[in-house]
Design a protein around this nucleic acid. Structure first.
Length: 578
DNA sequence: TTTGCCTGCCC
DNA sequence: ATTCTGC
DNA sequence: GCAGAATGGGCAGGCAAA
């Protein structure tokens, strides 16, 4: 298959925002792909070359894409960055530059999808001295034989950002439509077994989703769907192979929480650690992160705890690991535990200095049986039955079941007093939904504080926000100086109503004093209110602090730069919270 | 040998 | 992580 | 209500430049 054929699909997807239309476009493509040899091409549809659970990385991002473009086109870094600033998409820059170049070339080699796939797949394998040079060579080889459009999508694929708006749901539905016949208005009279009526269609969709949930691999699911329903149904959950985690949207009050998850609900602590999926298959024990990275080596204690304190031959547990101080037994902030996650050296030393407590809050597989569809209350019972509770090692998450808002609030207060982040509320009847943020559970966190800060630098946005100054460096003050305390971007509106990026850009432009690349320095005049969840020590910002999860809530035209929060006030808040 | 940029991935 | 937006 | 896109801080590790 020609890569240009694939690019045509990307273009169409990009031009159509309706999900139904996207599904149609993709289904047509998949019908063609069925007849091809390289089914791996399906990964390219989501800008990938491997299944989601693969840990292979390109090791290429913005800077190296710019280098590769320079190399392939001869255009200077400076011009590329300037174009990027203006149009907010390195892919589009590549399209312009490589497209222009093509006109001067008399013949061009046709790029096949396989060639693109092959070169991309080589990237993760390279290591050691000269790696970057060799990676750039592989990329510019593709770019030089690419058309403008092809260059655009090669770059976007490398950046891991295809921007064609196709997620799992769309892929799933198009596999359904490509592999199973759909009844259209004209032939509703026909009663063929293969023709989907709406009930049937729903079931097929669910079966495909279920197969993906269990395998996390679209290539496999597509191949099975081509064979038929029973092949899809044969997919099984396999402990040792990672599964995507269920996610939880935020809710503001317990009333809202109950109305979403129903009454009674299970409420448990939300720990400020990191997600850990623990898989046991007989003697093999593996630990995966939320993005399906294998961190078994980094957390040797998990094996020990699992062997000693959990009954069962095989299982998959969903847990949160929190770090604590081994002397004082006090829970430590996320910043500290994050030192262990990607560690390759001194693993044992860190394990002693910063041990973890594993809080188990869900189970989706037990003794050769999937529990994905088992109601949550049953799953919780199993957790409590099989885990021997050992605080500071492994334990079921702290939880209550209640239908009272008052009891929920008291439990929440206790969680905060214990130094945790908040609580989760969960629907007792719900199944487990890998990878989706569905309302079977929600999270509740404390109301947050804010500072008024002044904008001293800004950066041009990308994608939807191209052309606007959309990310702002904000500062507090100390005497007559302004000290950076982080960047903020979210909270503003892209369209109308409320404070927009457009408006802020307009206000900032006259204040610009210097420009470098995509960043501008501005006179410290504009004051904004920034809410945040936490204040962290920062190795990067001049104030020595940074805000965790910052977002802008409003403009303060009534305030001057001299009115913004002082470093002293920031320090006082840090004290107050600890 | 050391430093610092870059990337990917936790939140 | 948070937020906004389109479906 | 959900998925998708565009953004935040900070960590370790890998490589290249100093």
């Amino acid at each position: 298959m020609q890569y240009s054929q694939l690019c045509k699909v990307y273009e169409e997807l990009e031009q159509n925002s309706s999900r139904l239309k996207k599904t149609e476009i993709l289904a047509d493509f998949l019908k063609k792909l069925k007849k091809e040899k390289d089914q791996e091409i399906i990964y390219l549809l989501q800008g990938k070359t491997f299944p989601d659970y693969s840990e292979k990385e390109f090791g290429i991002s913005e800077k190296l894409c710019i280098k590769a473009l320079t190399k392939a086109s001869g255009t200077s870094d400076k011009e590329i960055i300037e174009r990027w600033r203006k149009i907010g998409d390195i892919g589009k820059v590549a399209e312009q530059i490589m497209g222009r170049k093509k006109q001067n070339t008399l013949f061009s080699h046709k790029l096949t999808a396989k060639k693109v796939l092959d070169n991309l797949k080589k990237l993760p394998e390279l290591e050691g001295k000269g790696t970057i040079e060799r990676k750039l060579a592989l990329i510019s080889e593709l770019l030089t034989s690419a058309s403008g459009t092809e260059a655009k999508y090669i770059i976007r694929t490398l950046l891991g950002d295809l921007r064609v708006g196709t997620g799992e749901g769309t892929i799933r539905d198009s596999i359904r439509d490509a592999c199973f016949e759909t009844s259209s208005e004209e032939d509703t009279s026909k009663k063929s077994l293969n023709v989907m009526d709406s009930e049937n269609k729903k079931q097929i969709t669910e079966t495909i989703q279920d197969a993906y949930d269990k395998s996390t691999d679209w290539k496999l699911v597509f191949e099975q769907a081509c064979k038929g329903l029973s092949a899809l149904k044969s997919t099984e959950l396999t402990p040792g192979k990672p599964v995507k985690v269920m996610l939880f949207p935020k809710e503001d009050s317990f009333e809202d929480g109950f109305s979403r998850v129903g009454k009674p609900a299970l409420i448990d602590y939300k720990y400020d650690g990191f997600r850990m999926m623990i898989n046991k298959n007989n003697n093999q024990i593996k630990v995966f992160t939320r993005r399906l990275d294998d961190v078994s080596k980094q957390f040797p204690e998990v094996k020990e705890y699992v062997k000693k304190y959990i009954k069962g031959e095989s299982f998959i547990l969903d847990t949160e690991a929190v770090g604590y101080d081994p002397e004082t037994k006090k829970y430590r902030p996320f910043q500290e535990i994050s030192q262990r996650i990607k560690r390759k050296y001194d693993i044992d030393k860190m394990a002693r200095e910063l041990p973890i407590e594993i809080n188990v809050f869900d189970i989706i597989y037990y003794n050769n049986k999937s529990l994905i569809k088992t109601p949550f209350k049953e799953r919780r019972k199993i957790i409590e039955k099989i885990i021997e509770k050992h605080p500071y090692k492994i334990r079921p998450s702290e939880a209550i079941i209640t239908e009272s808002v008052e009891k929920a609030e008291n439990f929440y207060k206790k969680a905060i007093e214990d130094g945790e982040e908040g609580v989760m509320m969960k629907n007792l009847e719900a199944p487990y939904k890998p990878g989706s943020r569905v309302g079977y559970g929600i999270k509740i966190k404390p109301s947050e504080n804010d500072f008024d800060l002044v904008i001293i630098e800004a950066e041009y946005g990308t994608g939807k926000r191209a052309g606007w100054l959309s990310s702002y460096t904000v500062a507090c003050r100390k005497d007559n100086k302004f000290l950076e305390i982080g960047k903020v971007s979210t909270g503003l509106k892209e369209k109308t109503e409320g404070l927009t990026f457009k408006e802020l850009t307009k206000k900032l432009k006259p204040l610009i004093t210097k420009e470098h690349g995509r960043t501008v320095e501005v006179k410290p005049k504009l004051v904004v209110t920034v809410v945040y969840q936490n204040i962290q020590k920062s190795p990067k910002y001049s104030s020595g602090f940074a805000l965790r999860f910052p977002r802008i809530t409003r403009l303060r035209p009534d305030r001057k730069a001299g009115d913004v929060a002082t470093l002293e006030e920031v320090k006082k808040e840090v004290e107050r919270k600890s």
